[in-house]
Design a protein around this nucleic acid. Structure first.
Lengths: 207, 207
DNA sequence: CGTGTCGTTGAGTCCCATCAAACGAGGTGG
DNA sequence: CCACCTCGTTTGATGGGACTCAACGACACG
């Protein structure tokens, strides 16, 4: 009933409309949930990091496209048995409810980014959000004052889809943030945030 | 433990950061959830219609500003007793989980509107979404081919906050949709949608 | 009649999308 | 080893869609 599955970088995991055979928990890597309009415009609607839950108990079909950004390992459960387990285990249900409510809050907070922030603010928001979640996952990392090193596996295009921008604009704004000393673009997709508090100020988060 | 509360049009219901004393179910009217940046930019992150749930079991403080658009009646429960009820009633928990998952899907779908659609598409999306939910609530309304009459109590500014636009742009786009025959602006805040399928085509929904 | 709220309309501006070109890194095969 | 290709990224020039600023009209209310 429970099994692990690995997806190489960039590979699709599921398409919207597919029958939903499994639900899963993210073990490692980043899963991108996105929606695509028929003319090709794409919007990322969720970034799933390790410990996040993927899929929807009680729904027959997949709601959004899911793909692997970087290499991904999932811990999968067949949906039907999982639903029975859920029905017999109130504790599991309430845990899942709590996680879903957290995701809903996060989704709503992100709506504010998409609806009201400028390009520069959006890029800073993405960096800050990912940095915060990454440090939450790995305690003892990124104490105040020290540059925070990230390696997150999104291409410029994937970031643009997250932010409702074009990849060119993302590239320009990353460059601008780097020129302003808020960001060091590392080799490959690594990057460092020398002053996370100052970055937070860019997006209107109290330092 | 359970009691009803009425809010006049436009009145605030709760502010983000307040201690969360109650949770509630919307009985009538429309509740707007929104987030405000410190420079005043506001983004609506959820529209709650009758039967929707307001508040978050297990959280001490309110996450988003809530206010009444039009007159609102809520069915309130004190949070602590409600949480105990939830713990003792697996069925209620799973029902709430299901509702939350639906809201999450809706929030994610809306991200696509905020991130990728044009002003015209956004306005059409709002009309279409509200029309669809309104007809779902009142069965036997709005059969195909007949003009669908709506009376939804959002000012131009509230619509703009929903859509990530300015109120002037909303006004212009409503005017343009009306000129194109997709919409009849009624007296006051009433309006009619003569051709809902053609409206759906505007937002890339299959007719 | 003055005042406030809501809605519409116009003119000008700016930010970001678009189109286009070039660059670097990595892989492949001759 | 080097040409060659692909993919991701950067950078530049240009235009357009939405924002901004502003004025005006409609209506309700005291």
């Amino acid at each position: 009933m429970k099994f692990y599955r690995r997806f190489p970088a960039g590979q699709p995991i599921a398409w919207a409309g597919d029958p939903a055979e499994v639900v899963a928990s993210v073990v490692s890597g980043v899963v991108v949930l996105s929606q695509t309009l028929e003319d090709g415009r794409a919007q990322t609607v969720g970034l799933l990091l390790p410990s996040d839950f993927l899929g929807r108990p009680g729904r027959e079909t997949v709601a959004f496209d899911a793909s692997a950004a970087g290499e991904v390992t999932l811990c999968c459960f067949r949906r039907k048995p999982f639903e029975r387990l859920l029905a017999d285990s109130p504790h599991l249900t309430s845990r899942l409810l709590e996680m879903t409510l957290d995701e809903l809050d996060a989704a709503r907070a992100w709506m504010s980014v998409l609806g009201r922030q400028t390009a520069r603010e959006r890029v800073a928001s993405l960096l800050w959000t990912v940095a915060r979640r990454q440090t939450a996952l790995t305690p003892g990392r990124g104490r105040a004052g020290q540059p925070l090193r990230l390696d997150f596996p999104l291409t410029r295009e994937a970031m643009a889809n997250c932010l409702g921008l074009t990849l060119e604009t993302v590239s320009r704004q990353l460059g601008a943030l780097a020129r302003d000393g808020l960001l060091v673009l590392g080799p490959g997709r690594a990057l460092a945030l020398p002053d996370i508090d100052h970055l937070a100020a860019e997006i209107g988060e109290a330092a």
